[in-house]
Nucleic acid binder design. Structure first.
Length: 712
DNA sequence: GTAACAACGATATAGACAGCATGTC
DNA sequence: CTATATCGTTGTTAC
């Protein structure tokens, strides 16, 4: 099928032509035949890299040409910015809405295409964003994630809410290969387009001893080291390709990268450049190891990396300079980063409570699908490693030839249902129990006919919890949100978290930093760190001296959960006391990426608890607000006045303070020149410009107060 | 007596969304 | 309870 013959805007066709795309891939053509450009709903279950994005893009341009508006939902922030870049500059107004970066919400509605994470859309719905009612095309990327135990229900509820609002809206769902695409398609009233066609040939095989067995042929792999996995990498690199190696833990990723580095022993100025950049930014051990590996053409990739380190590794691999990345599943689901050979080395992964469990087939597919770069590699290879002869057949059966798992709704899970039911009531999607249940009829859960009684029992229990917590009230048969309930819904925190926080705040405890932090770290919304045996000493020592500073009673059977919350809280306390990043990473055995992760996570919860404090414990609002700024910036109390200035972060604020310039008055008294000596003339000038403004503000406030006083 | 190394046992284990209002060195 | 790689300790050998 020729692109020129399609009813899409000429500008778009021209931009494809410039990129050398003149004809559709077979699965793309199948989408058009199934009614893509006729407004039909589609579920497109085709492999990664076979052109799903292009399909969605054509439909979006087609809709906008007819005056429509499109919402493109993705599961990850990184994916949101990737898609945003991709859709921008093709004639349409594109907006992006994620937690980090968003255009003003009302302004967002002026775009033709809005890219957002599912949680952000949920939050926009809760805040009654008007333009959501104007959506005529909804694109769901990676829709199979509806199966995710913790986040899947959000996507499901968002889809149900949007369909409820805009019944005529077209839906295009993009999915990996799944076991029951028919069920999903049925739910969405969509035509199913299924295919396993790929632009690059994919060969899947199992390595054993000295060769890879594929379905129809074998391939020798020269043995040159005592490590099988390393030989597999060297084999591809010698041939001019790159490798992605998926392993089960961060340690494994780092260890493999080290091994690969000493096996490759590459060296060139570009690699040295990457290495220098990493080394100059990172003070941590991990960063130094990464730099050393990158210098020799290998790298590792996991969530402990700082953002910049990730970017360098990804860019270096895309440029073809870095030959191998050893990665945890970070790279499997996220970015588009293909390589000629993908090695799935660890197909068992540690799972809390279960020990080592085999990864799902779908995840294997996702990793294997990264093999083969379109237009660059002659073919792609996905390789599993067998430890014994018997394993060869087993791996073929369990992964290569195995059908993908079914996706199942996660809606009946009480823990996640809690937050969604509250939001239904808070936003008037449902005003009585019957309406809640009727709304749930529109979910994937109900469509699959999974036990309706289990769902209604779960709903009852959730409603009871919400009533008891006084987040909703029941007047006759009517359900209404209380001020508390609607606040919790808008703050976008789990009602169970809110209960934990409010209960502790109203317990008349004296404010302590660690009390607040540990409390927040024990809520289900908080991302907490693993506790190793080594950490226990640190925790015990803290408890010995500061036990009474905690707000929470230490449960007599304090288990892993408590330890994790305390460890995370201690890290955050260090952070807010300006302990250096390197010290923190060493002390808690984490990477810089983890530090930013927990800081971001807690900053959000501190913000939420400040709002809760205003409602339930006003005397705590002040100290919590201070803590909000301190966690956000990583500063001690004494820098609070300075941090409010634009252009002043934790480093400059500390410099000023140490030079005796700890307050706005001190800055004013010192004058621009003296301040300039500490933080540079240019920034100093900026600061003084603001100081004028601040003075005006203070005077204004003063007048207002004076006025009030007069009337009082 | 000491260095190098094998054998063994203890140890530890992936990822990541949201609020809000603007800007680090 | 499940698996695997790493790392520290102890035990062994070679000079």
């Amino acid at each position: 099928m020729e692109i020129a013959d399609l009813p899409i805007p000429p500008d778009l066709a021209a931009s494809y032509a410039r990129r050398g795309i003149t004809e559709l891939y077979p699965p793309q053509a199948a989408c058009v035949e199934a009614g893509l450009l006729l407004g039909k709903n589609l579920l497109i279950a085709i492999p990664t890299a076979s052109g799903k994005t292009l399909v969605a893009e054509m439909a979006m341009h087609h809709q906008v040409e007819r005056g429509g508006k499109c919402l493109y939902i993705v599961p990850l922030r990184a994916l949101a910015s990737e898609k945003f870049e991709e859709f921008s500059g093709k004639g349409l107004r594109v907006g992006i809405a994620t937690g980090d970066l968003d255009r003003r919400d009302d302004y967002l509605g002026r775009n033709d295409i809005i890219v957002a994470t599912s949680e952000k859309v949920d939050s926009l719905l809760r805040n009654r964003t008007p333009w959501l009612a104007e959506i005529t095309l909804l694109v769901l990327d990676e829709v199979h994630l509806i199966d995710d135990p913790s986040r899947g229900a959000t996507l499901e509820m968002v889809v149900a809410k949007l369909r409820h609002k805009n019944p005529a809206m077209q839906i295009i769902a993009l999915s990996a290969t799944i076991g029951n695409p028919g069920d999903l398609a049925g739910w969405l009233d969509a035509e199913l387009v299924e295919s396993d066609w790929r632009p690059v040939d994919l060969r899947e095989g199992v390595f054993f001893q000295n060769g890879i067995q594929f379905a129809d042929h074998n391939r020798e792999v020269g043995r040159q080291s005592k490590y099988e996995d390393l030989d597999l990498v060297l084999d591809t690199v010698e041939e001019g390709g790159q490798c992605l190696v998926f392993v089960s833990s961060r340690k494994n990723a780092e260890a493999f990268a080290k091994r690969a580095a000493s096996g490759l022993k590459l060296a060139n100025p570009t690699l040295a450049g990457y290495a220098d950049k990493i080394r100059s930014n990172a003070g941590t051990d991990m960063g130094r190891i990464l730099a050393a590996c990158v210098a020799q053409g290998a790298a590792f990739h996991h969530a402990g990396l700082a953002r910049e380190e990730r970017q360098i590794v990804e860019a270096g691999f895309r440029e073809g300079e870095i030959k191998v990345i050893a990665s945890t599943p970070t790279l499997a689901a996220g970015l588009n980063l293909p390589a000629r050979r993908v090695i799935v080395r660890d197909y068992l992964r540690f799972n809390a409570g279960e020990g080592m469990v085999p990864i799902p087939v779908r995840e294997y597919r996702q990793m294997a699908g990264r093999a083969g770069r379109p237009h660059l590699d002659p073919y792609g290879e996905a390789v599993l490693i067998a430890k014994s002869e018997e394993m060869i057949g087993e791996l073929f059966d369990c992964y290569i030839d195995a059908p993908a798992e079914d996706v199942r709704s996660q809606c009946a899970n009480e823990a996640v249902l809690c937050t969604h039911i509250l939001s239904l009531i808070a936003t008037n999607f449902a005003r009585e129990t019957g309406e809640v249940l009727r709304f749930m009829d529109g979910t994937f859960y109900a469509h699959c006919g999974e036990s309706p009684r289990a769902l209604s029992r779960a709903v009852d229990r959730v409603l009871e919890f919400l009533r008891e917590a006084e987040m909703i009230t029941e007047v006759g048969e009517w359900l209404e949100p209380t001020e508390y309930g609607s606040l919790v819904s808008r703050l976008y925190i789990d009602p169970r978290s809110a209960e934990v926080i409010v209960t502790a705040m109203t317990g008349r405890k004296e404010y302590t930093d660690i009390g607040l932090l540990q409390l927040l770290c024990s809520t289900p919304d908080m991302l907490t760190l693993y506790v190793r045996r080594n950490d226990m000493y640190l925790l015990d020592r803290f408890l010995a001296d500061h036990r009474d500073e905690l707000w929470m009673e230490i449960p007599w059977d304090a288990g892993e959960g408590f330890d994790r919350s305390l460890k995370t809280a201690l890290l955050l306390l260090d952070w807010a006391n300006e302990v250096g990043e390197e010290t923190i990473c060493e002390r808690y055995n984490v990477g810089p990426g983890d530090v930013y992760g927990v800081v971001e996570s807690v900053a959000w919860l501190v913000h939420a608890s400040r709002h809760l404090a205003r409602l339930f414990a006003p005397h705590l609002a002040g100290p919590i607000e201070e803590m909000e700024l301190r966690t956000k910036h990583g500063i001690k109390k004494e820098l609070l006045p300075l941090i409010r200035l634009r252009g002043i972060g934790r480093v400059r604020a500390r410099r000023l303070f140490n030079n005796g310039l700890g307050s706005l008055e001190a800055l004013r008294a010192a004058g621009p020149e003296k301040v300039g000596k500490v933080i540079g003339q240019k920034i100093a000038a900026q600061v003084f410009e603001q100081l004028e403004g601040v003075r005006d503000e203070i005077e204004e406030v003063g007048e207002e107060q004076a006025t009030l006083f007069r009337f009082g």
